[in-house]
Design a protein around this nucleic acid. Sequence first.
DNA 1: ATTAGGG
DNA 2: CCCTAAT
Length: 695
Amino acid sequence: MVLQKRLDYGFNGYQVPYTPRATRSARRRSAFKKRGEDNQMCAFDLLATVAGKLLLDKQTPPTSSNASTDENQSAVVKYSEKKEKQYENKQLKVETSDQGSSDRGFFVSELVSPAQDQKYNLKESPCNQEDAPLGFASVITSSDCSEGFSDQKLVNGKAENEMGILASKVEVGPSGYREYGDCKIEVETKKIIKDELHKTGKVQFGTKVDGCSLDDPVVWDGKPPALVSSDSSPKLPSCRDHSPHSSFPASRDYVNVFSRDDDEKSSGCTHPNTTKKSFRAAPRIGDRRIRKILASKYWKVGPKLKDVTLSNTDGELRTVYRTRNSCYKSIRSERNYPIKKRRLFNYCSVSNYDGGISGEDICVSPKRVMNGDVSGLCSKMHEAAGASSSVAGPHTTFRSRDSHVKLRIKSFRVPELFIEMPETATVGSLKRRVMEAVNAILGGGLRVGVLLQGKKVRDDNKTLLQTGISHDNQCDALGFSLEPNTSQTPPTLCSGDYPFMLSCDTPEPLTRYTSTSGIIQQGTCDVAPELHVTNISNFIESDHDSAPSPTDMSIDNSTKDSKALVTVPAMSVEALAVVPVHRKSKRSEIVQRRIRRPFSVAEVEALVQAVEKLGTGRWRDVKLRAFDNAKHRTYVDLKDKWKTLVHTARISPQQRRGEPVPQELLDRVLTAHAYWSQQQAKQQLKPQPETCLLV
DNA sequence: ATTAGGG
DNA sequence: CCCTAAT
């Protein structure tokens, strides 16, 4: 009996006492609190749900619709051609900047490719959306914009944006529409950012020349991020040959599995001040994480939507961000959320549940962007200078018969990113980099700003009617912007604002980087509010009431706005990934789950060998002995792996998953496990009689 | 910091 | 791989 039990519980027979612990659910709850803050995802979600181009649809037929003027188009094209030359640079750059707008951060992209827009309008929106203002705005803004939009290109009159654009259609249904009673959310976790690595060394995001096809649903290139981004941290030890053959001498003596360590901890390129505890690695999305992220996203987005958009105008237009719960339902049914996670959802969302008291619903239904819709995404120009730019698109407003305003946000545009990567970087790594940057930005906590005629509408209590949003003549004047969530923002349950920070990810061997590294170094920092994702650390310190934790990267607050830029000497050549850093606020820490890194057969072999020699229960020694160079393998990992190995060895081969472990190894696992279990059993039994004797 | 174990 | 309890 005893022995059996011990065997069941593994290698350490002596682990007997049971200690009271928190209930599982309690643990989960706490875990959720911690992880729920998965900023990056949240950001992404934000995009998926809210972000978008805002379109105000008219219910009545369009009174007038004008195709964009050819002049504007040609002008745009010219301009873009000009701009294109700036990309001769061999380094790949994607830049984030807010162009010195008064409103930092994120702007709604309204600039729509005329042609496509037209199409779109004909098809879906009664209101023509491409009118003079659009083209005009694009041209103007671009020329005004001193910098940062260089990554935009217009071809054939169509906007081509090299910047990633996350597009989603958001429909805000008129309240009172019964058919919207149930909030329906169809969210597609797709990668909308499509990037292409051009021969010229240019990075192109989002679109093809012609179609602006964003329909690439691929999120990752299929390879496990970790594997792809095998790292080359500067201080990487010399690369030895670690083929199984050479690594595991028949003698089974000391074996040290070398493993490239691309883990966060090893990154030598992080800011000096950072410690491994201050933040985790660049966002990597693992199977499980996605779920979590998704989980965290909705309760985060919801509140924001509610707060920023239409809520509390007046009784009539009151937004009922109803049915967060029902939203969850549909989401989770889609995602197959574990039950536990669902509970967590509710846990976090309760506070904002309105129950539909007002009897009005708003339907937010992000949809996958199809080709036809993409036009909206391919914003042609960079919305120039800030606030006004965010208004860009031609919007149509209308008053429905029941005095409701129907809004449709077609897409939001992601601010520019600046990413520098070596030519030798893989496309996959580039994709990840961009994804990380986008996620980080969005995860930083956003709020929505409303602009009317280029002016920010600050009074949240004004009704749409009072503001003029509901008037027909305002169709082209309404804009939305995504802004950093500052402390002034009304507190929402889950909204967060985290400064951004950079961590490094080293997808390519270091040697390759050296030559091309460091194009951008110090000096760029205090110039413009740009987020350079390179070797420069950058912060957006948006919350003044909470000081950054000591471990956070330095924050330069000198800058006029709340956004500060800090340069850090390049420590590694690779571009840095943007990673939101958690503030030390009530929201505890946001810890990111480590990437899953399946053990290779070689590692298993090394582990088995070490355990054979050392026994179970000495994981630190095992680690030192066989995995000393594998920084990402902690002794806990090794212990866990052994646990699973034992389990694997016991189950039928058909039940095993993942890379098959040679049966021979599994046999050794069982043998070693049995042996050491027995040893420990003996050790436990021995003292027993002794004490008895003594007593 | 380690170890054991549950999730 | 995470988290926690207990050393």
